[in-house]
Amino acid sequence: MCEATLDFLFFHTVYPLSFPRSLVGIKENVIILLVTADDRNLEESLGLTFYDSALVLQSLGTVEGMNLDGRGWTTMVVEDQVVNLSSDPHFSSKVIKGK
């Protein structure tokens, strides 16, 4: 089986579910992007599958990317402020307080 087929099977059968995600991507000019996708909020976001995560990073122009973490503890903090809608607000408050 070719590598592309194995990748397809992995992304679509092993991890087909959408969840909150934390991603990092590197652009060709070495700019690093940090991306957070929320879920559990139908008006804002439904989360991402691993495959969708790759598509998002590609659409942002990255040449390398990685899934860092996910699920309810996905939290993006900028200048001491949570900027995403974490599905676990108790955890995100601990991140802000440094606990």
Rank of each mutant, 00 (worst) to 15 (best):
L34N: 01
L6P: 02
V24C: 03
S53Q: 05
T5Q: 12
S59W: 07
T36D: 07
D38Y: 06
S87F: 05
G25I: 03
E3I: 05
L48C: 01
N67W: 06
V56E: 11
L6T: 04
Q81N: 15
L60D: 10
L68P: 01
G47W: 03
M76C: 12
R21I: 02
T62S: 11
F8I: 01
K99V: 10
V78C: 13
L55R: 11
L17P: 00
E3L: 09
K94I: 07
L68F: 09
I32S: 02
I32F: 01
T5N: 04
S86Q: 02
R40I: 00
A4Y: 07
S59D: 14
L68Y: 04
S93Q: 15
T5G: 03
K97G: 08
S86V: 03
V82W: 11
S22R: 04
V77M: 13
T75I: 06
P20A: 15
L42E: 13
V82A: 12
G72M: 07
V95L: 13
L17C: 12
L17W: 13
N67C: 05
L9T: 05
L60F: 09
L85W: 09
S87M: 10
S59F: 06
A54N: 02
F19A: 08
L60K: 04
F11W: 10
N41H: 02
N84M: 06
Q81T: 12
F50N: 09
K99F: 08
F19W: 07
L33A: 02
R21T: 03
C2V: 00
L17A: 15
Y15V: 11
G25E: 03
V83T: 06
D80P: 02
I32H: 04
